[in-house]
Design a protein around this nucleic acid. Structure first.
Lengths: 161, 161
DNA sequence: TTTAATCCTAGTATTTTACTTGGAATTAAA
DNA sequence: TTTAATTCCAAGTAAAATACTAGGATTAAA
């Protein structure tokens, strides 16, 4: 039951981008550097985020990315879904989230009680991630940073895995 | 962010076992048959469940498994943790759930705002799975079954993947 | 002594993850 | 007009994780 690097890096990147909305554009290379994420890997995430409308881009020198809408209107759920495809911990036909008509899969769909559990887990996750917005995280981040203004990360220790 | 077959099969198996507590012992082969799970794969889950004290076993002919304690005292969380190791969607040093002292990993641990998000996701999941007990599921299952007493699963359609 | 079961260790095919590579296209600035 | 900085795109790939299978050894009831 793990969130992959896509979701984890994706959120970090979006928080970083949101924290630099004073700048005209933000290049992937700068995000990658600050967040200790491989730039070419970030490209893939950027592509997903763009498809989802969460960021816009301008090409060429001095180009880069901007948020697609205000940070207060982008939820963590939006980001994770864009990067991971879905935030469901279990997806099986017959669950509400998959509105694939009929019980197309599981043997004896209405007898599958665990379905009930998966549904609860999925809504718990969804409710949580849809209730947190980038704007809050940016605020939190600034607070933390001003508390320790001297500490500047550096990639060596972590970030990768 | 997917729950693996271990957790999914594990819970199904435990519900099945809990539904047959009138019998002396329940063999893996019978669970495997009813739940459409490979018996040899189930053995591995049974071993984890036993280590966690969620089931007890007796060897030899006529042997089999029983619940380690009452179904009302075994939560879905207990089962999932036994099978999957943890129910955390993200584990990184610095999170409460990992009480590994110091910020042993992430660059600039206190600046990592996403930590705050992972924590919320993890608690949401934990709270959910720790609040559902096998006894409820058995009851639900019986209700569903008596509603459609004629339907008997059969493995063909699903169960595997 | 046969048979039905748990128990145990290891192997393996497949899938997924986490990247990298090698460019092409676009645009601002020199 | 060239150069440099950037996004964009499609494939390839090594390593890890997943979802099993195989082959027994052990135990105990019938």
């Amino acid at each position: 039951m793990k969130l992959s690097t896509k979701g984890r890096y994706g959120l970090r990147a979006m928080i970083d981008l949101a924290s630099h909305m004073d700048e005209e554009t933000v290049s992937l290379s700068s995000i990658a550097r600050r967040e200790c994420i491989s730039e070419s890997y970030l490209e893939q995430l950027a592509s997903s985020l763009k498809k989802a409308g969460l960021v816009t881009s301008s090409r060429g020198a001095q180009g880069g990315y901007r948020l697609g809408r205000d940070a207060s209107e982008i939820s963590v759920g939006d980001v994770l879904r864009a990067c991971e495809g879905s935030t469901d911990a279990v997806s099986c036909p017959g669950l509400k989230s998959e509105s694939a008509g009929k019980e197309s899969g599981c043997a004896g769909a209405e007898m599958c009680v665990s379905k009930y559990v998966w549904e609860k887990i999925n809504t718990a996750i969804t409710d949580t991630v849809d209730g947190i917005y980038l704007s809050e995280l940016v605020k939190e981040s600034r607070k933390a940073r001003t508390g320790h203004p001297d500490e500047l990360p550096g990639c060596a220790a972590g970030g990768k895995r």
